[in-house]
Design a protein around this nucleic acid. Structure first.
Lengths: 199, 199
DNA sequence: GGCAATATGTTAACACTGTTCGCATGACAC
DNA sequence: GTGTCATGCGAACAGTGTTAACATATTGCC
């Protein structure tokens, strides 16, 4: 496990962490709809009321799960530029972005679902911003004239592509055989920015 | 509003249509989560079991609502090219696409949510395809070399942009003041395709 | 017209769910 | 020890989706 932060170890029981882990499992198995407080408590082996000592309500629990998702997401996108020449970093990160979504469909879906009270939770907001920051920065570098527009365009593209693939909207392309298309489109996007606005 | 016969008969007469209409209202008011079979029946003035004579289960009802959404969506995008020179049609349609999403946030969300058994319903599938067809065609015209890639890229872009705006992910940009940005980005996207791959 | 067949509605019930309340417990500070 | 506080438990409440058995209206047929 990579996340090793024994910061707030209370005097007994790591139920809070166990709940988030179990919720993640349930999410992966059956989607966000399948995550229920009672079933969750059942899995962890506590009473139905116990989770409410750690999460105000179901939405708070869901937000915690989403926050974990954004952390992992951030690591994946950030890690994609290691050892990559600077002029190829954007393409590599864009590809990693979409691949993460394809590798964790329900988690990615949850992260952008409406169940997260429009990102009211500050923790969640911060986690999300960190995750986008990397990609936005790389995109801005590609088009120094209008960094804002470039970043938003790039982000919209990868996010939209991820969602369409997860929805199975692209005829003939499924999650399993999407890799070549993803590679082609992300590279194409990178090249397009450069060609249109040469440094 | 619809059919002027508020008589309290035993048989409603047009319950199926009334249910979809009411569900649309509930969706607009409180999101997909707020659409419940019992509350729905209550609004229409029938018993809780009555809707099940017209929809197998809740998901079928939701799918019907989504199908209506796709029809309206199709009209909006299609209508955007009326009276527009051919070389500006793609930009106009892309802008209309995003504006529809911003005008009907919860409906658009529902149309792309996971609650629609990965578009298993043929009616839904057809409605969705029709809606995309227009935009995809316009995008393909812009880049005759690789029409498939161009269409997918364009679609991914407008869909992603819509979602990010609905989520409030773009700092400083809300649904209310997004119009200039949307216009700039969609025109930029259109121009980029042309510049990169001139006819 | 009368009359079965069928489509559509109702009531009651089941098995769930999220959430809250009052009470029990067990770890730690003094 | 005793007290305190975070944490867990059991029972209960209101609400949900869904089904089964029963009631009524509409329709097609003679």
């Amino acid at each position: 496990m990579s996340t090793s932060e024994p910061t707030d170890r209370y005097h007994h029981g790591d139920l809070k962490r166990a709940l988030v882990e179990a919720a993640l499992e349930m999410l992966v198995e059956g989607g966000a709809e399948a995550v229920g407080m009672r079933e969750l408590a059942r899995r962890v082996g506590v009473s139905a009321a116990a989770p409410y000592r750690h999460f105000r309500d179901k939405q708070a629990l869901i937000q915690a799960v989403a926050a974990v998702g954004f952390e992992r997401f951030h690591e994946a996108v950030e890690g994609a530029r290691d050892g990559v020449p600077e002029d190829e970093q954007f393409g590599a990160m864009a590809e990693a972005y979409v691949k993460f979504a394809l590798a964790h469909p329900r988690l990615y879906r949850l992260m952008f679902s409406a169940e997260l009270g429009q990102f009211g939770d500050p923790d969640l907001r911060r986690a999300a911003d960190a995750a986008y920051g990397s990609l936005a920065l790389a995109a801005a570098k590609e088009d120094p004239e209008r960094p804002g527009e470039a970043a938003i365009s790039a982000w919209a593209f990868v996010h939209g592509l991820s969602m369409l693939l997860l929805d199975g909207q692209l005829l003939g392309v499924s999650i399993d055989n999407a890799d070549p298309l993803v590679r082609a489109l992300t590279r194409r996007a990178a090249q397009r920015i450069r060609t249109t606005h040469p440094a």
